[in-house]
Design a protein around this nucleic acid. Structure first.
Lengths: 370, 370
DNA sequence: CTGTTAGCGCGTTCAA
DNA sequence: TTGAACGCGCTAACAG
């Protein structure tokens, strides 16, 4: 048992005193008296209970327990009395793997990632795993750095949530970093595109956008605009492409495509050009952008859906009470996050790709034309 | 260097082969060839570089570096060639403290917590710390369990975000768990009420609500209702109390208080009774509840703000584009999360409480009464 | 079922 | 500056 009253200031070596507690009643009491400032180890517990280290380990941290009832009780009592806390670092070192998973997201404030994270964290919790979260704020370098750190942490699995970019060099380096991690036995899954040779939960961006286009065309719209987000973001690209392809397939004119940032302000800024181009229906490639678009239209006195229809993508729960209610493509985000972590945690021989279909939901923000 | 091709399946002991790499060119090449399936340790790097373990350690992980340039270069080269990854668990064990902080929140999908988390994570990143996140989903037991786990992880600090409940027994047990953690040198901070004897960032719930009440009274409102959330949640209580007290101070009648859940559905369900009671102005104790209230009013054909005014609390960024724009009390959430972690990380002699004032923001959802 | 013992990989004295 | 050696706390053979 090491004294560690102000462990933050103390370093090993400054702590000279050791308290022996060989089972003697008095010494045990002494030990308990010192509890307030002591770090109790498994060895302390074993001694206090009068058993071997191994037995104590089996009782307190072992998986398949095979310890007699009386010894078990003694160990548990001793642990409780001394206030024993497992030292996870020691466990991890001895076992070679941590009970931790890593989660790398772009931005927790974005409800899309929050929902994914929530789903993943529920799975983690159900399996007794802690979650280490890294936020990249869309910085590719940081994403790579997080994978590296999580690798050093020997986490059981890494979940990469969020669209890949078209930056091939960055993707390549990320992949190398992931390979390093996998070489050490790590498992990887991602939500987004199947570009990393890992288990992937792939939202049906193309198909969903196509279905949305068809539905909107079904409302009589002919002149579309797409608030397409950044050119480099594959999710944004796929949704734009799926939308455009579906229109082409229906023999309709190509949509007017406006690029911008992938967030609320991106939608706000881009929608002006969209209406100027004469679109009767604007598709923002995600809900958050759609919200920005709605705000901009409101500011310009353009009514939705009377003057122009607006649709988004994702069906973010927090945004469901918007007025007018947003037409969109629903993605089961929490499920996707959960599923991705499950894939990573239940390894298979080869990487699996699970496609998640989006469901078109038409609400008030889009109306039948004419 | 341990072979670990399928480390997940292998256990120590099954790995019999060891590759010696004593500096011989051929053996080194061999080692590199095996890189794809090997876990490289610091010892491997040291041998490969022809230096001692200590030197390798100083170069790769040491803080105050004092190693000759040539040796340094050799070590770095060897590490790069072999693809060395620090084993954080071993480091943590040897050092006694992990470069990790713990963050316990109620619900990441709630934008309130997402914003707090975001602020805290930025601070963590700026200090090279990883963040372990636990989501309690408002389960007090789970909160306690997370503190215990984070304690076992030997995290540097634990940040508890979210209101305490009035459950004294649970608070007491949480506090005991926190004490255990602190005994081992851990640091604790929380966002919310100063009930845990820890550094606290305390939003001015009472004062903010009072200021809001005054502002709304200034608009001519006299008959108020409060969507007060759960009776057991202290944040909800404080906001309700502050609001009521301010009204009393102004000589106005007490508000009609309706309890419910602290989320969107709680607001949706409670607002009916509020209007039935004849309130001209409804104060929902958080923005998310206010959104629910707006939805319910819309569903009933009650216009906001023409028929009834609605105000919230927090000023959630994601909700700023709501129609009508929500009057609320702005809290700098990201700053609060960041500040709390800073407090925990920069310990002082005694627990500090930092009060964060809320700023009343009147927007469209409240109007001057005829 | 229980105890003994040898590592897990790294940090850090201490001596050279 | 550099190296040798011990210890961090725990797990998992192996022996009994």
């Amino acid at each position: 048992m090491r004294l560690a009253g102000c462990a933050a200031e103390l370093r090993r070596g400054e702590v000279a005193t050791k308290i022996a507690c060989e089972g003697s009643r008095r010494l045990a009491d002494l030990a308990i008296a010192f509890l307030e400032v002591a770090v109790v180890t498994l060895e302390d517990v074993a001694k206090h209970a009068g058993v071997s280290l191994a037995t104590a380990s089996r009782v307190l941290n072992g998986s398949t327990r095979q310890v007699g009832a009386s010894l078990r009780a003694r160990v548990e009592l001793a642990a409780a009395q001394l206030g024993y806390r497992t030292n996870v670092a020691a466990q991890t070192l001895a076992r070679g793997a941590a009970n931790v998973v890593g989660l790398v997201v772009h931005d927790l404030v974005d409800p899309y990632f929050a929902a994914l994270a929530d789903g993943a964290m529920r799975v983690a919790e159900s399996r007794g795993l802690m979650v280490m979260v890294g936020t990249t704020h869309r910085d590719t370098e940081r994403e790579i750095a997080y994978v590296s750190t999580l690798n050093a942490q020997r986490v059981r699995a890494v979940l990469l949530a969020g669209s890949r970019t078209a930056d091939l060099r960055a993707t390549r380096r990320l992949r190398e970093e992931l390979d390093r991690y996998r070489e050490g036995g790590g498992r990887v899954a991602c939500v987004g595109q199947d570009l990393l040779g890992a288990d992937t939960v792939a939202p049906g961006n193309r198909e969903g956008a196509a279905a949305l286009a068809a539905a909107l065309a079904g409302l009589g719209h002919r002149r579309f605009a797409v608030l397409a987000g950044p050119t480099g973001l594959i999710t944004a690209r796929d949704r734009t492409a799926g939308f455009a392809e579906a229109l082409a397939g229906l023999g309709l004119p190509a949509p007017h495509v406006v690029h911008g940032s992938f967030d609320r302000d991106g939608g706000y800024a881009a929608v002006g050009e969209a209406v100027k181009a004469g679109a009767t229906c604007v598709f923002a490639v995600n809900d958050v952008m759609a919200v920005g678009a709605l705000a901009a239209l409101r500011d310009r006195g353009i009514r939705v859906p009377d003057d122009v229809s607006v649709a988004g993508f994702d069906d973010i729960a927090t945004l469901r009470d918007l007025v007018p209610a947003l037409s969109t493509v629903r993605l089961p985000l929490a499920h996707m996050g959960a599923r991705a972590l499950e894939l990573a945690l239940d390894p298979a021989d080869e990487a699996r790709v699970e496609k998640i279909p989006g469901e078109v939901v038409l609400r008030e923000s889009t109306r039948r034309l004419g």
